[in-house]
Simulated assay, not measured.
Amino acid sequence: MKQSYVYILKCADDTYYTGITSNLPKRINEHTIGLHKDSYTYSRRPFKMVFYAEFTDINLAIKTEKQIKNWSRAKKEALINGDFEKLPNLAKKNFNS
């Protein structure tokens, strides 16, 4: 089975970019050289790859990428830092604000 990767980049403007690819080194190089001028990361270079996960099921990889893109910054940082026990609590909405 072909590998797929979901990755998170921390951009120069302190934002996070989440992407998916089947060739991680190639895709990171494309971000680095600014191959796609209309991409989110083009004007936010340099960046640092702060997380990636491997998948053998492309459908699960796509689902995971979409899920992470909808997460709060705090939840993304918990994932990046390996604080997996914090993830369920960070999913709860605060209705008292």
Rank of each mutant, 00 (worst) to 15 (best):
M1P: 03
M1V: 09
Y5M: 02
Y5S: 01
Y7F: 05
C11M: 14
A12D: 13
A12N: 15
T15H: 11
Y16I: 00
Y16C: 01
Y17A: 03
Y17W: 07
Y17K: 04
Y17R: 02
G19H: 00
I20C: 06
I20V: 14
T21S: 07
T21M: 06
N23K: 10
N23Q: 13
P25Y: 09
N29H: 15
E30M: 05
E30T: 06
H31M: 03
H31I: 02
T32F: 12
T32P: 01
I33Y: 10
L35S: 15
L35W: 06
K37W: 07
K37N: 12
D38G: 09
D38L: 03
D38Y: 09
D38V: 05
S39M: 06
Y40T: 09
T41W: 07
S43L: 10
S43W: 03
R44H: 11
R44M: 03
R45C: 05
F47E: 09
F47P: 01
M49Q: 06
E54I: 09
E54A: 14
F55Y: 14
F55H: 02
T56P: 01
T56I: 09
D57R: 09
I58D: 04
I58L: 12
N59L: 11
L60P: 09
I62R: 03
T64R: 04
E65K: 04
Q67T: 15
K69D: 08
K69Y: 01
W71D: 00
S72Q: 07
S72C: 10
S72V: 04
R73H: 11
R73C: 11
A74C: 10
K75R: 13
K75D: 04
K76H: 02
E77W: 01
F84E: 12
L87V: 12
L87P: 09
P88S: 15
P88Q: 13
N89W: 12
A91C: 12
K92V: 13
K93F: 10
N94H: 10
S97M: 14
